[in-house]
Design a protein around this nucleic acid. Sequence first.
DNA 1: CCTAGAAAGATATGA
DNA 2: TCATATCTTTCTAGG
Lengths: 210, 210
Amino acid sequence: MIFADSREPDRIVEMLKSMGVEVQRKRLSVADYLITYSSYAIAVERKDADDYVNSIADGRLFDQLYRLTRLYELSFICVIGSVDFYRMRRDAFIGSIVSIALKSRGSVVPLWVKDEKDFCLVLKSLNRQVEGGRIKATPRIVKKASIDDSVAMLTAIPGVGVEKAKKLLERFGSVFRVVNATIPELMRVEGIGEKQARRIYDFVRGRRVK
Amino acid sequence: MIFADSREPDRIVEMLKSMGVEVQRKRLSVADYLITYSSYAIAVERKDADDYVNSIADGRLFDQLYRLTRLYELSFICVIGSVDFYRMRRDAFIGSIVSIALKSRGSVVPLWVKDEKDFCLVLKSLNRQVEGGRIKATPRIVKKASIDDSVAMLTAIPGVGVEKAKKLLERFGSVFRVVNATIPELMRVEGIGEKQARRIYDFVRGRRVK
DNA sequence: CCTAGAAAGATATGA
DNA sequence: TCATATCTTTCTAGG
């Protein structure tokens, strides 16, 4: 059974029905479609190409992504139609697709389909496979990642980007040691002078830094 | 750094290099490409559309899929080029794509790209995003005054979102004090239990967190 | 998301 | 030590 959000256009629901899929309207809080079977729920977010491009530019996309990951173990974002590559560069588009998978660590799967017909095929196929119970085929090996979130943490300091964050971690080994370092210690890192060292020192201690 | 299997064609390796990506040849046992950064590894399997169709027919695809899930936490299967829909029905093709994601529960992400140029863009983007250490579904934070940067910094800790970051800062006053807090002290913050407290404590000290 | 270019800072050199 | 030239990195704006 597929639930379609009540704000989704009729034409899609009709198309699904004409394909022999059981669809029911329902008010959904986060996704546009929900495929359920026994205790599984898979969410699908539909995005027209134009809207997708906009939502990247203004950061909306990654909010939605975040909400999806909080609520569902596995969801899909379907981009429909052709992208206007004058509005967004090709590499930026591809980068955003890759980013969805990476940021969500695979729990949100990006799909790019030609048209709404194909989108419906995706839903239909999802529905059938979930019902068929094929979802349990290979158990996912959850070996928690250990990527450097520490780098990301340090880049939040004004004036510290990826390069400096890496160098800081290289020298000090952990965020704890960076945060507890003295100004002269910080200055020993290549690329960090007195000014920068003082900024870091002050920032982590909550003093206003400009 | 990207490792390319030694059997991969030169033209792709060259194309990557011409895009400014560091590539090294290596004999890989399962995937075609490997993107590594610190202890993290992402595998990429390249499949020309024709070969993809064949590999479904003879069952090879799902063997490969299985091996990928066993070895890597996150991998990609890139189908390159247009599919001959006389050899494989459109719905069957879409179904297979969906099936990859479902069976692997998202740990293998299927991507369908136009040509090898786009494939290289995928690799390039993967490489950069992994190196940047920004692999986390953190909500986008609007940077205003410096106080918000502190919140942003704390949200990089796994399991800490905007709400918890704010509460932490409210109680401790600065990133320095949060980082230097003991586990019992951290637990006194509303919404943070022992498990979370320990995670924060361990994370900032550079211990791998589960 | 990606790039380009401006701005800021760090390092090296030489007086 | 200071002034300056060069290089590296960060940040902001725009698509």
